[in-house]
Design a protein around this nucleic acid. Structure first.
Lengths: 344, 344
DNA sequence: CGTTGCGATGTGTACGGTCACATCCGCACG
DNA sequence: CGTGCGGATGTGACCGTACACATCGCAACG
C-alpha cells in the first residue's frame, strides 16, 4: 500500500541480542545460558566459559523487563521523599542508592510537592504502578503517615527520620534524645530562659525535637514557653529572630535545624547582639557548613547515611522473609563549637 | 516430604489481575482493554465505561515490565550524578524528576563515588542494563565526559551544568558569563587586586568560572594571578583563607561557590578582617542560606531547576525524533548583598 | 552387567502485555 | 438491494526470560 520497501535484503532494525542468540553462538541451549546468568551450580567449567565468551562477544545484556515479567519481581525499591534538597534527606538518599545498588536493587525516587492527601496518593500510586517491592519514606510528616496507613501499602516499607508512632516501620535517629542533649548543654551553661524555634508542626521530627526540649526543661524544673513553629529555612530563622529579639527575655535558643539557626544568628547581628556573649544558640543536623557559621555553630549531629543504609538492610531482610531485625535508633551526638557560652 | 499442605481448597498465591481478567469482567476481549489503556480513538463510549469500571473494580494496574518487554521501551530516563548533596545538582534532580513524571517517564538515578573511569563505566553499565531510553549527566567533570565519549553511549543524552566542549549534548547556565559579571562587579567597585578561589580543576564548571574571571580581568587590563583550586567545601574555603590572608595582597575575592565563600569569610573573621570593609567577596550559586551569611553574600544566581526541566524537554523531543531544539544557555544573575563594597 | 543416582543439559510453557491482521456489523451509495 | 467502507471488536503471534520437567550420559553400586 505505502512505499514498497526492499524487505529481504536488509536486516533493518538492530535487535539487541537475546539469550537465544547467546546460546547459538556458544553452541548450547538457551536454558544453559539462563543458568549461567543466574549462576546455577551445575555447569561444566568449560561450558561456562564458552557462554561467558559468547556473552561478551555479543555484548549481551539480560533484559530486565523480561526478567521482571517472568519472576514477577521488579528488583526496585521505591523512595518517597519530600524536600530532597535538604541536607538530611539528600544524604540519606545517597546512602540508600549505594546500598541498594550493591544489593542488586534499583531505586525509583519520587518527590512529593505537598503533603496533601491527593499528592501522596498519587506518589504512592506512581511507585506501586512500577511494582516496587518495598518502599522507603523520607517524608516525615504526620499527614504522610496517615495517608500511608490509609492507603494500605501492600509492600514492606520503612519511614526514615521519624519517631514515636508506627515504630514497627520506623528507623530513626533518636530526635528526642538529640534535643535533650542540646537543651541540657544550654542548661549546664547556666541558662534558665531558653527559647525553642521548631520545624513545621506536622513534621514528626520537629515534634520529637520539641518534645525532647520540653522534657529536658521540665526535668530541670525550668520554665517552658511556647516554641515558635518555623519552616526549616534560614529566612524563617531570620524573621523569627527579628520578632523574638524585640523582647529579649531569654538568653539561649535551641533551634530545630542549622539553617534556621543561621538565619537567627543573622538577626542577632542586626540587633547588635553577640553570639554567644549575649545569646547562646544550638542547632540541629550538623550540616557541613555549620562549622563555618559566624560563630561556628554548636549543633547535634545525626548520622543519616547510616539510617539510609539500615533502611535498605531492613527491607532486603524483610523481602527475604527474615523478621524482627533491629530497629535501634541511631544515637545523635552533640558537637560543641562557639555559639554557646556560659550565661553571664 | 515436608509438611502436607491442603493444596486444592485455597487459591494460594493472589495473582495481580491482568488484562484478561479485566476483559472477562467487562465482557470484552483483552484487546479492547488494551485499547482503553492506550486510549485508542475507536471505542464505543459505553464499552469504554464498562472497561473502566472493571479496571477500578479489580484494582487493575498495567504491568510495566510486560509493557516494556513487548514495546521495547522502558520509559525510563537515567540520571548519572555526582555529589547529589550539593545544592545545584539536588535542585536540578528535583526538577528533572517532576518533569519526567509528568511526561510519563520514570527516573533511574545513580551516583558516582569517584571520577575513576571504572566507576563511571560501572554507573553507565548499570543504567544501560535498565535499558534507559535517555541519559542525563549531572557530573560536570572532564573525565566523565571523556568516559562518556569513550563508552559510545547508545542513547540520547545531555550533560548539565557544563560549558564549552561537546555543546551538542550540553545544557548549561552560562558559567563564563556568571563569572564575568561577578568579577566586573568587583572591578566596578574599584578593586584591582582580585583573587579567585576555584572549584576542583577537573570540574568543567570550575574551569568555566575561572575562564570568565580571567577574561574579565584581562579585558580590564588588571593583573591576573593564579587561582586557588579548591574542592567546593566550606572547610576548604576556610583553610584557603587562612593561607591567603597571611600575605594580604588583594582586596577582593571571587569564590567559586557559596560554601567556599562561607569558609573564607570565617577565616576573615578569625584574622580580624571586616567583610566587606577590608575584603570584598562574591560567591556563586546563591544557595538559600547565602542571604543569611555574615555578612549576607553577594553571589551569582543560576536557575538550575530550569536547566533540569529543559533537559527533560530536550530529551523527550529527541526521543520523538525532533531535532535541533534550542540549547540556549540560561543566563545567570548577580545578586548584590553586603559582602562587597567600594575599595577604600 | 543391569540398575540406580546424579550432574549436565535440553524442551515446553507461562508471564502480561502490544501489534498485525481478521472479522463483524451497520450504513451510505450507486 | 448488492456492494463497499469504515468503525468497533476479536484472534494469533511474539517480546525475552525463568521455572518445571524431561532427557542424556556416566560412574558407582549390588
Amino acid at each position: 500500500m505505502a512505499t514498497h520497501d526492499e524487505r529481504p535484503a536488509e536486516p533493518e532494525r538492530v535487535r539487541a541480542p537475546n539469550i537465544r542468540d547467546v546460546a547459538r553462538v556458544a553452541g548450547v541451549s538457551y536454558q544453559t545460558v539462563s543458568r549461567v546468568l543466574n549462576d546455577s551450580p551445575s555447569i561444566r567449567p568449560e561450558t561456562l566459559q564458552r557462554v561467558r565468551d559468547a556473552i561478551s562477544e555479543l555484548g549481551y545484556r539480560p533484559n530486565q523487563a523480561a526478567r521482571a515479567l517472568v519472576t514477577s519481581r521488579s528488583r526496585t525499591i521505591g523512595v518517597l521523599s519530600a524536600q530532597t534538597v535538604h541536607y538530611g534527606p539528600a544524604t540519606a538518599t545517597n546512602a540508600i542508592e549505594t546500598a541498594a545498588r550493591e544489593a542488586g536493587y534499583r531505586l525509583s525516587i519520587t518527590n512529593i510537592s505537598s503533603t496533601e492527601y491527593a499528592s501522596i496518593k498519587s506518589a504512592v500510586d506512581y511507585l506501586m504502578s512500577q511494582s516496587v517491592e518495598a518502599l522507603i519514606v523520607i517524608a516525615p510528616q504526620v499527614r504522610v503517615f496517615e495517608a500511608l496507613n490509609d492507603l494500605q501499602v501492600a509492600v514492606p516499607y520503612v519511614t526514615l527520620e521519624a519517631t514515636g508512632l508506627n515504630t514497627s516501620h520506623s528507623l530513626w535517629v533518636d530526635q528526642v534524645q538529640g534535643a535533650r542533649i542540646a537543651t541540657r548543654h544550654l542548661i549546664e551553661l547556666g541558662h534558665t530562659e531558653i527559647m525553642h524555634i521548631s520545624g513545621p508542626q506536622d513534621w514528626i521530627e520537629a515534634e520529637a525535637r520539641m518534645q525532647g526540649f520540653l522534657r529536658e526543661l521540665s526535668d530541670a524544673d525550668l520554665r517552658t514557653r511556647a516554641p515558635i513553629l518555623g519552616d526549616w529555612t534560614a529566612s524563617f530563622g531570620y524573621y523569627a529572630g527579628i520578632e523574638l529579639l524585640r523582647y529579649r527575655d531569654f538568653s539561649a535558643v535551641f533551634v530545630g535545624n542549622d539553617q534556621m539557626a543561621l538565619g537567627f544568628m543573622h538577626a542577632c547581628r542586626e540587633h547588635g547582639l553577640d553570639v554567644p556573649g549575649d545569646i547562646s544558640i544550638v542547632g540541629f543536623d550538623d550540616i557541613p557548613e555549620a562549622a563555618h557559621f559566624a560563630p561556628p555553630l554548636t549543633t547535634v549531629r545525626q548520622n543519616v547515611a547510616e539510617i539510609g543504609r539500615r533502611a535498605i538492610a531492613l527491607l532486603l531482610g524483610e523481602l527475604r522473609g527474615e523478621e524482627g531485625l533491629s530497629h535501634d535508633p541511631v544515637q545523635p551526638e552533640l558537637i560543641v563549637r562557639e555559639s554557646t557560652a556560659r550565661r553571664r
